[in-house]
Design a binder for these strands. Structure first.
Lengths: 173, 173
DNA sequence: TGGACCATGTAAGTAGTTACATGATTCG
DNA sequence: CGAATCATGTAACTACTTACATGGTCCA
């Protein structure tokens, strides 16, 4: 999987601009995949050259022109080829977990501070995903799966942190 | 956080070789941080030049020589500086979740196959982490936190997949 | 005897990110 | 009037990974 495959997925149904794609990513898959404009725009350009997408410039009133990209038959083929390719293992890179892992080299106060910040982040993610769930009660099952994944993940982290913090309290009493 | 910081964490207590570091990573933090030899060896070289670590060659019988790296005072300072720096957000890149998110563009059979493979992977991770937990009952609390994180994460994924698969069964009956 | 483990290292390539540039509109 | 949103794009950089090279030992 690379950014090209993900873009093809987003425009499989309906044409989108690079800006649209970035926005869609941000409020649907950002907790397990993210890409910057600096990756999206060059990818679209390359894909146009390769005939995977068609570009159409759309004039807008009071807004800049949009480059709308539609998937071609060749693009659909490419996406289906991706779906048949071996699945890349999930990669995670967590600074906070590395810090906690080496927690013995710093102070309890520092770690508590980290845990509280991490709790807040996960609470915010949880809240936003729950909101999405409420907003789209008839969400298609597969999207629901990934949403549920995010919710449970955040729940898990919050629970683990709360347990850990209460243990710390007990020890200090 | 970069690979240098993580290496400094691993050798903060006791000197290690690049090979040792890779092994330690693999059976402790690999589910939230990973690095290849191609990253570790050049990093150690660079850190030696910068005076963050000291190298000592150790002769071994029946095995190749080892380059053992010990952290210097400057290295410890650098590590403490890392601990005071802003925490990088956790990054995840999940091919399997992207595929499921776009699941409507493929078949139920394909997705079931993906889910089962993902279940197995997580079961294997769960088993190996549970084994670690049993093997080191007096594990230091911070390492335990990250271990518990991995266990709950795997549990969560397995649970979600099982629920999803049983729902699919119901629908097909 | 062939594969796994031990051990180090580099060169080439990749897949991005960050930062900057541009410029109009809308909203508080 | 300044910040945010809309919208696209590139150049420089980074932080790696992959693949290859080397070579000994141990075990089934």
């Amino acid at each position: 999987m690379n950014i090209q495959d993900v873009i093809l997925g987003f425009i499989y149904d309906e044409p989108m601009s690079g800006y649209d794609i970035k926005q869609m990513m941000e409020n649907s898959v950002s907790y397990f995949f993210d890409a910057s404009f600096g990756a999206i725009y060059p990818a679209l350009r390359k894909m146009e050259k390769e005939g995977l997408v068609d570009k159409q410039v759309v004039q807008q009133e009071g807004k800049p022109n949009k480059n709308m990209f539609a998937i071609t038959d060749k693009g659909k083929e490419q996406f289906q080829h991706y779906l048949r390719s071996p699945i890349n293992p999930t990669v995670m890179r967590s600074d906070i977990l590395i810090r906690i892992f080496f927690g013995r080299f710093t102070t309890k106060e520092k770690i508590n501070q980290w845990l509280l910040a991490e709790r807040e982040k996960n609470q915010a993610l949880y809240d936003s995903l729950k909101l999405l769930e409420e907003k789209y009660p008839n969400m298609e099952r597969y999207k629901r799966f990934t949403l549920e994944y995010g919710i449970r993940q955040a729940e898990m982290v919050i629970g683990l942190i709360d347990e850990t913090l209460s243990k710390v309290m007990e020890q200090e009493e």
